[in-house]
Computed example of a mutant assay.
Amino acid sequence: MATIRFGFGRLNFYLLKRRSFLLLKLIAVVFAVLLFCEFLIYYLVIFQCNWPKVKTSAYDSEQETHETVLKAMFLADTHLLGEVRGHWLDKLRREWQMERAFQTALWLLQPEVVFILGDIFDEGKWSSSQAWADDVVRFQKMFRHPPHVQLKVVAGNHDIGFHYQMDTYRIKRFEKVFNPERLFSWKGINFVMVNSVALEGDGCNICSEAEAELMEISHKLNCSRELLWWLQPRLVLSGHTHSACEMLHGAGIPELSVPSFSWRNRNNPSFIMGSMTPTKYALAKCYLPQEDTVLITYCGAAGFLVVIMLVDLGLLASPFLLGCKLLRKFKTV
């Protein structure tokens, strides 16, 4: 009788040990996949991005060596979801993606200034005061940055409403959180931040105020009426389209539309890196991890976990043992 009990005890111990080993394997796989998909993949992808080099000609190379280069990041259309259309899982997934991408880019690329070109929020055009405050808190957490990095934000139509929806209240609410600064200068480079929603040209009060501000900036910069004539920019960067589009305006002034930074708008979000001096600039696109890559990795890991459990339960032959048998059979033949 004692022998039988001892045998059952050993069997139970063996089964417990086997189940514990299986559990450890499953936990290890889950942990490794989560670590890769939620952290490491951002470093692996963004690490491949490099700041573009400002091209210099042989004639002015000596002069250019004395000009310091400003490293600027440009991103757009983050579209933080609100309380009306924002499902909690959608918020969690997409906002975690943007937070990890932004924090990783700051750590790896060390930009000096970051510009977000509109549509920060998805529901700013109709959100209540409390919903707006909640959205702002989430934004500040996601896009936190060290004191030496400047963060400049431009209003978009989803932040203050389309032209015939926007009003002074929404604009002031936005400017209370984000500095309403229109002209930002650093290292001899002037950046003019424009509320393009107010440039309908129909003479509305908000439009007139925006045009007056731009005229004042043009006087400060000693510029010579349409916006480009006033300011005579070297480069125009904008958001809204969710895609990277380039066009040339009159006098050969290029405009580049910055892609969306969020998986909600693109499978392959990205941002623009700019190396700038007072006389020249160079731009490059930096891609973020693709959403389908992460989803495929999770699906593959789920399939691998199923195989591990089936092998442990004896419902599926071990691929390793099966390979050994096939190898022996091949050698025998």
Rank of each mutant, 00 (worst) to 15 (best):
residue 8 F to D: 02
residue 18 R to I: 08
residue 249 H to Y: 03
residue 164 Y to K: 14
residue 178 F to W: 08
residue 143 F to D: 00
residue 33 V to R: 06
residue 269 P to Q: 01
residue 188 G to V: 04
residue 113 V to E: 03
residue 314 G to E: 08
residue 232 Q to G: 06
residue 72 A to D: 05
residue 138 R to H: 01
residue 309 M to V: 15
residue 156 G to T: 03
residue 147 P to W: 09
residue 295 L to F: 14
residue 238 S to M: 01
residue 184 F to R: 09
residue 253 I to P: 04
residue 271 F to R: 01
residue 312 D to W: 09
residue 180 P to I: 13
residue 33 V to W: 09
residue 112 E to F: 05
residue 134 D to N: 05
residue 246 E to K: 04
residue 312 D to S: 12
residue 126 W to F: 11
residue 29 V to Q: 07
residue 18 R to N: 11
residue 262 S to A: 03
residue 127 S to I: 03
residue 220 K to D: 06
residue 50 N to H: 15
residue 230 W to P: 05
residue 248 L to I: 03
residue 52 P to E: 05
residue 190 N to F: 10
residue 252 G to D: 00
residue 125 K to G: 07
residue 19 R to P: 06
residue 71 K to Q: 12
residue 84 V to C: 15
residue 205 N to W: 14
residue 81 L to K: 06
residue 6 F to P: 11
residue 87 H to D: 11
residue 284 A to F: 14
residue 260 S to G: 03
residue 67 E to G: 05
residue 301 A to W: 12
residue 80 L to M: 11
residue 103 Q to H: 08
residue 284 A to C: 06
residue 64 E to P: 13
residue 94 R to G: 04
residue 296 I to G: 13
residue 156 G to W: 06
residue 157 N to W: 09
residue 166 M to E: 05
residue 155 A to I: 06
residue 186 W to K: 15
residue 67 E to R: 10
residue 236 V to F: 00
residue 139 F to L: 06
residue 116 I to R: 03
residue 233 P to H: 03
residue 228 L to E: 01
residue 102 F to S: 02
residue 36 F to Q: 07
residue 297 T to K: 07
residue 231 L to W: 04
